[in-house]
Simulated scan of single mutants.
Amino acid sequence: MASGGAWFLYSHDGGDSVANARPVPPHEVTISRPLVRDLDTRLGFLGQFSAVDQVELRAQVGGTLTGVHFRDGDIVHKGDLLFTIDPVPYEIRLAQATALRRTAEARLVLAKQELARARELERNDAGTTQNVEQRTSELNAAQAALDDAAAQIRDARFDLDRCRITAPFTGRIGRHLVSTGNLIAGSRGATSPTTLLATLVSLDPVYLDFDMSEADFQSFSQYRGDAKGPIANRVELAAGNSTTYTRQGTLDFVDNVLDRSSGTIHARATVSNADLRFTPGEFSRVRLAVAHPAPTLLVPDASVLPDQSEYLVMTVSTDGTVVAKHVEVGEIRGGLRVIRSGLSRDDRVIVDGLPFAAPGTKVATRDGAIRYEPKQN
């Protein structure tokens, strides 16, 4: 009897639990229809900054380097003294050229006097025409010698002035490659080897170089032909690790030939760099418009799920079933992801609760909102 009572109680309790079991309610997710805004189509590229002006500082005269007048990495201004070369040999040469000019001047004075006397003798029938011609020739030779001496002075002064190497423009100078006391080679032309002393690059503005594919170039060319004003040549950039395009530049050069080996064409923008934010050689993301504003669908980037080489957006049908849709995505605009195809403006996109939204399952929904952040545009 005791065992029968125990079985009765167990059977009674188990039956009551089964009868009271209820189905698990569906998980709740937040949905919203895609945000629709009129946006232009933009393409993104990876660019690299380069200096507008870049020069290798080399001596035009040889000699012993006697001074380095900057610190490595300094910003130097146009006309600042950078290097000095021992001027003594060139001062001596200038003094020699000056002495030659004085000699030539004295000979010219003498030649003029002798020519005057020869002409006077000829008029008095005391001299010959041959003598006059000889004195005239000596006068011309003295004048040529004076001109040559003057040219040698200019040449010597040119070399002496080149003993002081100054900055040809304002920019940042690199490290000095030759120390004081070294003998350096110099030349006025590129016919003989010269010693590289340092490099100098300009800083403001800077170039931003990038390459466009042939298809992108064709789209841009069509847009550029239709657009009016400077907006057609405006580019936006995000340097370094930044993901926000806070700076602008002007597209001022597109090459005239497509590179057939790579299928790209080179383009260049000029960017203001008054705050010295950008450094030549640094990489930057760059984007430019290639189509006029048109209605564009936007969803939160977190709502776009990668699926191997494709992307999915989870939506909820009218009966509460989760439906996955393959989409083609674009860039980030206003903190949201551009959807180029695969969604309609009436789709109900899951914007929160994705971990509970497996395709084909039932979910409960509550309405949410998608917000556009203009500062992140």
Rank of each mutant, 00 (worst) to 15 (best):
V316S: 00
L312T: 11
A302W: 01
L312K: 14
P300V: 04
L312Q: 14
V316D: 02
Y311W: 14
A291H: 03
L298S: 10
S309Y: 14
L305Q: 13
L297N: 09
A294H: 15
D307K: 02
A324I: 04
L312E: 15
S317R: 03
V323H: 14
S303R: 06
T296V: 13
V322C: 03
Q308N: 15
D307L: 02
S317E: 04
V299Y: 03
H292W: 03
P306H: 08
A291P: 03
D301N: 11
T318D: 13
V316P: 03
S317M: 03
M314A: 11
T296F: 12
V290K: 04
V304Y: 04
L298R: 07
L297D: 10
Y311A: 09
D319S: 14
L298H: 10
V322K: 01
V313H: 08
P306I: 06
S303A: 15
D307F: 00
Q308R: 15
V299C: 06
A294F: 09
A294N: 11
S317K: 02
Y311G: 00
L298K: 07
V304T: 06
G320M: 09
L297G: 11
H292E: 13
Q308V: 07
V299G: 05
T321Y: 02
V316A: 02
T315E: 06
V316Y: 01
P293N: 12
A289H: 12
T321M: 04
V299A: 06
Q308G: 13
Q308S: 15
V316K: 01
D319Q: 09
V322T: 01
P295E: 08
A324D: 15
T315D: 08
A289R: 15
V316R: 01
L298C: 11
V313L: 11
A302N: 02
P293F: 12
M314Y: 12
T296P: 12
L305S: 02
L297S: 10
P293E: 12
P306L: 08
A289G: 13
G320L: 08
Q308E: 14
M314W: 03
K325Y: 06
V316I: 03
P300T: 05
S317N: 08
D301C: 04
A291F: 00
M314G: 03
V322Q: 01
K325C: 06
T321K: 05
L305D: 00
V304P: 06
P300L: 05
A294M: 11
A291D: 04
M314L: 11
L298I: 11
L312M: 13
A291C: 03
P306W: 08
V304N: 06
V299W: 01
D319C: 01
D319I: 09
V323W: 10
T315F: 04
D319R: 07
S317W: 00
A302R: 07
L298G: 09
S303N: 11
P293H: 13
D319F: 04
D307V: 00
L305M: 10
S303T: 14
L297C: 11
S303E: 10
Q308C: 04
L312I: 14
T318E: 11
P306D: 11
A324E: 12
V323P: 12
S309V: 11
D301S: 13
D307P: 00
V323T: 14
T321E: 06
H292Q: 12
M314N: 06
K325W: 05
P306E: 10
E310T: 07
Y311P: 01
Y311M: 07
T318L: 06
V323C: 13
T318Q: 08
V304I: 09
Q308A: 15
